[in-house]
Computed example of a mutant assay.
Amino acid sequence: MPSTILSAPATPSEPAADTVRVAAPAKLNLYLHVLGRRPDGYHLLDSLVAFAGIHDILSVRPADGFSLEITGPFAALLLAEDPAGNLVARAARGLAAALGRDPHVAITLDKRLPVAGGIGGGSADAAATLRALALLWGLAADDPRPLQVAPTLGADVPVCLFGRTAYFAGAGEVVEPAPALPADLAVLLVNPGVGLNTRAVFQARQGGWRAAGRLERAPRDGADLTAMLRERHNDLMPPALALAPVVGEVVDALAAAPGCRLARMSGSGATCFGLFASLAEAEAAAGRLGAEHPGWWVAAAPFVADVHRLTV
């Protein structure tokens, strides 16, 4: 199915002469409703997606052949997997094939986000690969081929390529702009050191379907958005809890942190997030949670209005 992305940010058309470095930020599902299931088995979703200012870093440069180096604190899990299935490699080869050229690039992925964490790490990396190669290879701003490749890589890749606060629908192939997030909002992300397989979470889901939950209007401020989000849900949290009960401990710890407006799991887990009125409050809570749970990954960050404007 073709990707539907409205008002996607323009990609600069000037080719880069050397290394291109781009950020692959954490993707957060502020709510996630499961609306039904298609005949092909894919679930129909409705979600409000935002991006946090904590990210992997993707670097690409011209080379005589293709190579992928993975570094960073979460590199080991990816290095243990089959390289052929790596989303960065698939994105590079997919875009090269769409352009009718060889994928002669050297790619380095600095993996700073948890793997299988429900924050779109692999999808964000794939989207960053498409963006970086579009710059390296000098694609025109309106070249449709990165958008065409994105949905072939995974349900979250189109929204990560869009790179701004958005709704996504269908099985992830429909992406539409959402109202900008209020300025008085920061986020604290926590992963308990557990990865959850998305397919397993969907398979463990029980019960009926929920209606779409798009916001009825643009939120006035952070408190207003939080009130709207409380009326919405993450429908994958119950099955995630059944598979990894520690997710409930993380949500409870976030909810108990001073200043936390809302605590929720993102995506299919196991990463959870808390919303705060300021980055200072989120950082203070991060310090306390990190000290109390030294085995947890804890990171405070602002929200990012436009991933394409991030510099690394």
Rank of each mutant, 00 (worst) to 15 (best):
residue 120 G to I: 02
residue 199 R to G: 12
residue 274 G to A: 06
residue 290 G to C: 09
residue 312 V to R: 12
residue 155 A to T: 11
residue 86 N to I: 03
residue 166 A to E: 10
residue 60 V to P: 01
residue 161 L to W: 12
residue 91 A to Y: 08
residue 270 A to Q: 06
residue 301 A to Y: 04
residue 161 L to S: 10
residue 273 F to C: 10
residue 2 P to Y: 05
residue 21 R to I: 06
residue 227 A to P: 01
residue 104 H to W: 06
residue 75 A to H: 06
residue 284 A to V: 01
residue 9 P to K: 08
residue 71 T to S: 14
residue 312 V to H: 13
residue 79 L to Y: 01
residue 38 R to D: 15
residue 83 P to A: 10
residue 10 A to S: 15
residue 264 R to K: 10
residue 254 L to A: 00
residue 150 A to E: 10
residue 98 A to I: 04
residue 7 S to R: 14
residue 208 G to A: 13
residue 39 P to M: 07
residue 272 C to I: 07
residue 121 G to Y: 12
residue 215 L to P: 11
residue 299 A to P: 00
residue 195 G to D: 06
residue 94 G to V: 11
residue 242 A to S: 13
residue 247 V to W: 01
residue 95 L to N: 02
residue 213 G to N: 05
residue 91 A to T: 09
residue 284 A to W: 03
residue 132 A to V: 12
residue 298 V to W: 05
residue 172 G to D: 13
residue 84 A to N: 13
residue 96 A to I: 10
residue 33 H to K: 09
residue 292 E to C: 00
residue 21 R to D: 11
residue 142 D to I: 00
residue 188 L to H: 12
residue 210 R to G: 00
residue 94 G to R: 06
residue 269 G to K: 05
residue 280 A to T: 11
residue 27 K to A: 05
residue 229 L to F: 04
residue 84 A to S: 14
residue 10 A to D: 12
residue 141 A to G: 15
residue 7 S to F: 13
residue 261 R to M: 14
residue 229 L to I: 11
residue 114 P to A: 07
residue 29 N to V: 07
residue 287 G to W: 07
residue 199 R to E: 14
residue 124 A to E: 09
residue 135 L to I: 02
residue 82 D to I: 12
residue 265 M to K: 01
residue 58 L to H: 02
residue 86 N to C: 08
residue 66 F to W: 13
residue 305 A to D: 15
residue 32 L to W: 02
residue 80 A to P: 00
residue 120 G to Y: 06
residue 214 R to Y: 01
residue 50 A to Q: 14
residue 97 A to I: 03
residue 30 L to V: 06
residue 122 G to L: 11
residue 44 L to C: 12
residue 112 R to Q: 15
residue 277 A to C: 11
residue 235 D to I: 04
residue 302 P to V: 05
residue 270 A to H: 00
residue 294 P to T: 05
residue 220 R to M: 06
residue 10 A to I: 08
residue 197 N to G: 14
residue 116 A to D: 09
residue 47 S to M: 08
residue 58 L to E: 03
residue 149 V to M: 12
residue 154 G to W: 13
residue 259 G to V: 08
residue 26 A to V: 06
residue 275 L to V: 12
residue 217 R to I: 10
residue 250 V to D: 07
residue 1 M to T: 13
residue 174 V to R: 13
residue 277 A to V: 12
residue 88 V to N: 00
residue 199 R to Y: 10
residue 12 P to T: 09
residue 80 A to I: 00
residue 299 A to Y: 01
residue 170 G to K: 12
residue 204 A to Y: 05
residue 98 A to H: 04
residue 191 N to A: 06
residue 235 D to T: 03
residue 22 V to A: 03
residue 306 D to F: 05
residue 176 E to T: 15
residue 163 G to I: 07
